Amino acid sequence: MDRTVVTNALRRDPISFYDFTQFDYILEKTVDKKVLVDVIGALLEVGHLTGDFYGLKLPFKIKDRYNEVLECEAHNEQALEFQTFFRSLGQRNVVVALVFWRLTDRANPKVVSHGPVSKVFADPDTPEVEEIKQVIF
């Protein structure tokens, strides 16, 4: 392309590209379960790593600024990574962003990891983090 011009762009944090789904949309089951979601919330509790026929599972809960709670579950490799990640945080108050996670099709929706594409970020640089921390902690 003869007339194409390439210039420098401002560096952007990759977390700012995510579209966080509101907890009430998930709890009311208005979110398409065929689409991976991004959610952000205060890490409330982390359960124990267990295993079954399908592999490893690590349950945990997160809470949004409106005090709504979502049940979450990391599977297999993500379960091990999340357990290591959680232990490294210690007992401090932390907000986590779950990126590219899927929703279960159960009576009570749950956010679960979806293979290696699912990621967890602690205290990402977003306005939502400060809002959640002011209300929850």
Rank of each mutant, 00 (worst) to 15 (best):
D2H: 14
D2A: 15
A9D: 11
D13L: 13
P14T: 01
I15Y: 11
F17L: 11
Y18E: 09
F20C: 10
T21D: 06
F23I: 06
Y25C: 06
I26L: 09
E28N: 15
E28H: 10
K29E: 12
K29T: 06
T30G: 10
D32M: 00
K34L: 08
V35E: 14
V35S: 02
L36N: 12
D38Q: 02
I40N: 03
G41Q: 07
L43W: 05
L44H: 00
L44V: 14
L44D: 13
G51H: 09
D52K: 06
F53N: 06
F53C: 00
F53I: 00
Y54F: 10
Y54N: 07
L56R: 12
L58E: 03
L58Q: 11
I62E: 07
K63H: 01
K63V: 11
Y66R: 12
V69Q: 06
C72S: 03
E73G: 01
A74Y: 01
A74F: 02
H75W: 15
Q78L: 11
A79D: 02
L80W: 05
F82S: 10
F85D: 06
F86D: 13
R87Y: 05
R87V: 04
G90P: 04
V95W: 12
V99M: 13
F100P: 01
K110M: 07
V111D: 04
V111C: 12
V112G: 00
S113E: 04
H114G: 04
H114S: 14
G115P: 01
G115D: 00
P116C: 10
P116S: 15
V120S: 01
A122H: 13
P124W: 08
P127S: 03
Q134Y: 10
